[in-house]
Amino acid sequence: MTDKQQAKATKALVNAVVEGIQEKKGKNITVLDMTGIENTITSYFVICDGDSNVHVDTIADSVEDYVRKKLEDKPLHVEGKSNAEWVLIDYMDVVVHVFQRPIRSFYNLEGLWADAGRKDLADLF
């Protein structure tokens, strides 16, 4: 796969993730473009929050289902489903973070990765 094809596939994955989040009414969706930062382990972070552990778990399940159905892809790793305060879904080029709002505020990934290009839901591709 060429770099251009890989970039297109990665953006399709980001869009599918966002649609999966929207399907279950995930809130405050943000995409961090990590491609301009050297030595990062992923190309994009997709971050959102839910209102409760049930909501976070439901959003995470929706992302996995939506990506599997739309792109026939599955994550390399999923972490945090047992307490559902912060669920991480790793698709290698795209890492999804589904938080409960207080946990998201505490870890502040957007602040930690402030050098990344940031796009909120209204600005997506």
Rank of each mutant, 00 (worst) to 15 (best):
M1V: 12
T2S: 14
T2H: 11
K4G: 03
Q5S: 03
A7D: 12
A7T: 11
A9E: 15
T10P: 02
K11F: 00
V14T: 10
V14P: 01
A16W: 01
V17P: 01
V17S: 01
V17W: 00
V18T: 08
V18E: 02
V18G: 01
E19H: 12
G20P: 07
G20I: 15
I21E: 03
I21F: 01
I21Y: 01
Q22N: 14
E23L: 11
K25A: 02
K25I: 03
G26H: 05
K27P: 00
K27R: 13
N28H: 10
I29R: 07
I29V: 15
I29L: 03
V31C: 02
V31N: 01
L32E: 05
L32P: 02
D33C: 08
D33W: 06
M34A: 08
T35G: 14
T35H: 14
G36C: 10
I37F: 04
I37Y: 05
I41Q: 12
S43N: 15
Y44S: 03
Y44Q: 07
V46Q: 06
V46Y: 02
V46R: 08
C48M: 08
C48L: 07
D49C: 11
D49R: 08
G50I: 13
G50K: 14
D51G: 10
N53R: 14
V54T: 15
V54P: 03
H55D: 09
H55I: 13
H55G: 07
V56T: 07
D57S: 14
D57E: 09
D57V: 00
T58N: 15
I59W: 02
D61T: 11
D61M: 04
S62P: 02
V63R: 05
V63G: 06
E64P: 01
D65P: 02
R68N: 13
K69S: 13
K69Y: 05
K70S: 14
K70M: 11
K70G: 04
L71A: 09
L71I: 12
L71N: 10
L71T: 11
E72G: 03
E72A: 09
K74P: 00
K74A: 01
P75K: 10
P75F: 04
L76D: 10
H77T: 05
H77V: 04
V78K: 12
G80N: 09
N83S: 11
N83K: 11
A84N: 06
E85N: 13
W86K: 13
W86Q: 12
V87N: 06
L88P: 00
L88D: 01
L88F: 01
I89H: 02
I89E: 02
D90F: 09
D90C: 07
Y91K: 12
Y91A: 06
M92A: 09
M92N: 13
V95H: 12
V95W: 10
V96I: 14
H97T: 13
V98I: 15
V98G: 04
V98S: 08
V98C: 08
F99R: 15
Q100C: 08
R101P: 07
P102V: 10
I103M: 12
R104Q: 12
F106A: 04
Y107R: 05
N108A: 10
N108F: 00
L109W: 01
E110D: 01
G111I: 10
L112T: 11
L112R: 05
L112I: 14
L112D: 07
D115Q: 06
D115G: 00
K119I: 04
K119V: 04
K119D: 06
D120H: 12
L121M: 13
L121P: 05
A122L: 15
L124P: 06
F125K: 08
